[in-house]
Design a protein around this nucleic acid. Structure first.
Lengths: 215, 215, 215, 215
DNA sequence: CATGAATGAGTCTTCATTCAT
DNA sequence: GATGAATGAAGACTCATTCAT
């Protein structure tokens, strides 16, 4: 495909141009999405916001869904990055401290672009290729599951899979609620929130034998 | 909403017919919503499904949003009803058993019409319906909060508001996930699911003093 | 579907209205098609020309293709009508005279709306449901075939199917050419044209035994 | 079109490259046209298929129309070539045998690239290409007319122009139908088809005196 | 009150063509 | 000359809503 004499700068120049366009489109999508909501985010509006023609948009994304999917991917990648880093830094700590740090990281992740995250959670139809949203959950599951595996000796639940799934769902839900709705009861008190969630998770993973009969 | 004490039989008759039409429209909305998704649920399609003209639809609902809002309300009422009943039946039981029953009720509530519930959760917030959904959360919060208050002596958390909020959010998220996504790890094993969630909640509300140093 | 008290005038009124709209759309399609050509005939333009909104167009025709197909149908029906009448009037005549009249009818048929016919022949893509264009050929084939069958004794070709097919194709092609291109050689001389074609066809169907060795 | 006597080798080399590009573009156009149809044959797609950039396409052809026109020309040239050859080989034969060979040649001509020919016949007239197509008809007319002139003594029709026009139109129509639609009645039986058409034409050009009163 | 035909703004998407590199 | 990114006008089609009957 590359013809003769395609001086690298040329190719790289056009590559850079393309990439800039794509970047601009994703940014515009995020902006329009958060400012106008999913339904009012038309491809024309997005292109205009990106300072690009609709034609260019369709040069890079086959349809609106793909565009949003790409943005979701990018956002997910950013959030996962935070989780990965947190897991690294936490590797040698004891469970409780580690969990606390991880919860803190979860809050940070949700703060990356909470408005956008809210749109994703509330408005983007989970259909077709947009199932990518769930992919985040999948990756998260695997990372957390690996971590817990490694801390197996500090954990007393039997089924690690279920436990992982539960923890991930819980932290996601609570963090989301905390960041998005700022629940009246914890309004902004981030430390108390982290404490509370940590206690919840640790209590679940490492129930003291003293835990009384449930019947 | 239902006018009280219909005076003349004639009036009541027409009221009954109206009521039936409204009912038919809501049913049709639910059907179309679950079968076609929010985006393809047009008022024309809904009216057709209800066996009514679009004109009639607009006789009863000023716009599409109001129609969906009414359906959300109806659905919420049904789910809350289950919760209220469960709370009554559970009043005299000890905390752990009670929680178990309440979790079970939560699953039942999500099974009332899980497909519809999914649509509401994933697509409806696009509209101004957040209010309605939050209203459900609000009512739920109040009911649960009242129940926990009454069991205060069995609960060792300090801030009952936070605890309520956390419990409600958790149960909602886990139940939703369980019903909608049938997580691989618990696929369909409802009893194990209920056990696990119960243990989680009880452990959180009534931590054994034995829960030792986190460091 | 019919509700109570739908006084026939009402129903018929709206039926009349609908029908008028459909008629207007088909007329507009013909006009736009002949004036602008197939490619420039957009649904919006057609609707505008019909004095109707695009929405109405799509109320009656699922897409542009269907609209054109309906017009083709209508046009075909008109042309076939002429053929049917001619066949009736010709039933008792001898073959040669009959053929002459039929050729004349073919010319008339092509003159019904020759501009439109030209567009159909030259510009309408023969794809999808537009295969209806060929349906005309099919019906024509059957009618002519039936006629020839009935005149079997005056015809000396062996395979009546082939003969029918050939006659139909020939007459269509020549008539089309005559009407559309007014070939220099016969410019407008309709009687000479009819004579010539008649001689051609009759010579083919009823070759005199005297026809010399072809080898 | 090919410049004559390329002087310098260098120039000739680049000319050869240009020529190759043009050839590639025409081939690609034919491929895309037959595979996708006229409507979906975009210049971008054609360029891509040719392994060339759109820019290059526009270097050689001012617009899409010119590109298709060139392809039509090439195709016409190929078909005419077959006709010319057939006329040469047939020069000394008697009329009936000659006609038979010419009809055979017509079928061959239509088989050169029948898919492409179909597209030209059905879709291309949409553009200004009618000229090109009529040019083919024109050339064909002249060639055939010259041939018939030369066989004047074997032909008993009066107006040779009309006769030529009719023969050309007939053979084109029948052959086209035979090749494209494979009429049920003659499905694939090429020899019978050629026989039949030959009989038709010869009967028309050389009617035996025995052909009786038409009245 | 019911009906359903009509409306038309607004969406997504394509494609011939240009032009900076 | 070649490249291919960018353009934007234009087209097909949908749908919430209105209103004459």
């Amino acid at each position: 495909m590359a013809r003769s004499v395609p001086t690298t700068p040329r190719k790289s120049a056009s590559q850079k141009r393309s990439q800039a366009t794509v970047e601009a489109l994703l940014d515009a999508t995020a902006r329009v999405l958060t400012r106008e909501g999913y339904d009012r985010a038309s491809t024309n509006r997005i292109a205009a916001t990106a300072g690009v023609s609709v034609g260019s948009l369709y040069q890079y994304f086959p349809n609106k869904e793909a565009l949003v999917a790409a943005l979701v991917s990018r956002h997910n990648r950013e959030m996962l990055e935070l989780l990965r880093n947190a897991l690294k830094e936490v590797a040698s700590l004891d469970l409780a401290t580690a969990i606390r740090e991880l919860v803190r990281a979860a809050v940070d992740a949700h703060l990356v672009d909470s408005a956008l995250h809210r749109i994703f959670a509330e408005q983007v139809p989970r259909m077709g290729q947009l199932a990518k949203i769930e992919a985040l959950q999948g990756e998260t599951f695997l990372l957390v599951r690996a971590y817990l595996e490694q801390r197996r000796h500090e954990i007393s639940v039997r089924d690690l899979d279920s436990a992982t799934s539960i923890c991930v769902t819980i932290v996601e839900a609570l963090t989301h609620d905390f960041v998005i709705n700022k629940p009246v009861t914890l309004k902004g008190d981030r430390d108390r929130f982290v404490d509370e969630v940590t206690r919840l998770i640790v209590g679940y993973l490492r129930p003291s034998r003293a835990a009384k009969p449930l019947t």
